[in-house]
């Protein structure tokens, strides 16, 4: 399994993260997205005419939408992550996978605008991104009332992986995440999962590690 990858892309990170959480072995092929624009060159357009990354390749199969890649990787390496216990759970997972496109189109765009100078209607992106975060926050409140800590149920699924990166990286695009206490707790529980890996802008939880030594004593 090969992932054509960019270290700063949240959509590529979703795939790396799920691979790490499921123990799947994937081969990373770094793409010079910035400054080189390699994803818009002929060999990449031949694989993916839409000119986006990630691109995922396995045994002749090519997938270019992060939600599709998550679905395929989970089916192959960790079926529990698909969250298809019940029709309702399956529906919720599909709902959030589709929703994650709105996150990419709002927060994702604001982020590459503010960080890498890519063109965007920044105010519109920020408004749409804030709206997305409010919807996630409200959904997490209702999930909690139903006894569920994650977006689609009582355990993490690819729905959470699909929505987690942009929810944490919103400040990169000038969108505050301070007003969302439920998102804060939800992203913490994802960062606490065994096998979790970080990406730039998403720090690991240093609080999971003990202090390295005794506190120097006052005499």
């Amino acid at each position: 399994m090969i992932l054509y990858d960019y270290i700063l892309s949240p959509d590529c990170y979703k795939v790396r993260l799920l691979a790490a959480l499921t123990g799947a072995r994937i081969t990373l092929r770094p793409v010079d997205f910035h400054p080189g624009g390699e994803h818009k060159t002929a060999p990449f357009l031949a694989m993916n005419p839409s000119g986006t990354i990630p691109i995922f390749e396995d045994d002749g199969l090519i997938l270019t939408e992060s939600s599709a890649i998550l679905t395929y990787l989970a089916a192959k390496a960790g079926p529990a992550w698909l969250g298809d216990d019940t029709p309702a759970m399956r529906g919720r997972v599909a709902q959030w996978l589709a929703f994650s496109q709105r996150l990419s189109a709002s927060i994702g765009k604001a982020r590459v605008h503010d960080m890498l100078n890519k063109p965007a209607d920044i105010q519109a992106c920020r408004r749409a991104g804030t709206q997305c975060l409010r919807e996630i926050e409200a959904a997490l409140v209702e999930q909690r009332l139903a006894g569920h800590a994650f977006l689609a149920g009582d355990r993490p699924t690819i729905a959470d992986i699909a929505c987690f990166p942009h929810s944490m990286l919103a400040p990169d695009g000038g969108i505050s995440v301070d007003p969302y206490p439920s998102i804060r707790l939800w992203t913490r529980s994802i960062r606490a999962l065994p096998g979790f890996i970080e990406m730039p802008g998403i720090h690991r939880l240093h609080d999971l590690k003990p202090e390295p030594g005794p506190i120097p004593e006052r005499v």
Binding site: H203, H206, D207, K209, P210, E211, I215, P216
Partner: peptide, 28 residues
């Protein structure tokens, strides 16, 4: 943006940690 270990809060930048009274107790 910091992190909590035990009864102290540490800054994420350089890990300086502060006890419950706000007093710096460790500079890594």
């Amino acid at each position: 943006h910091g992190f909590v270990r035990g009864e102290s809060l540490s800054c994420i930048y350089h890990g300086w940690s502060y006890n419950e009274a706000g007093l710096c107790q460790r500079i890594p």
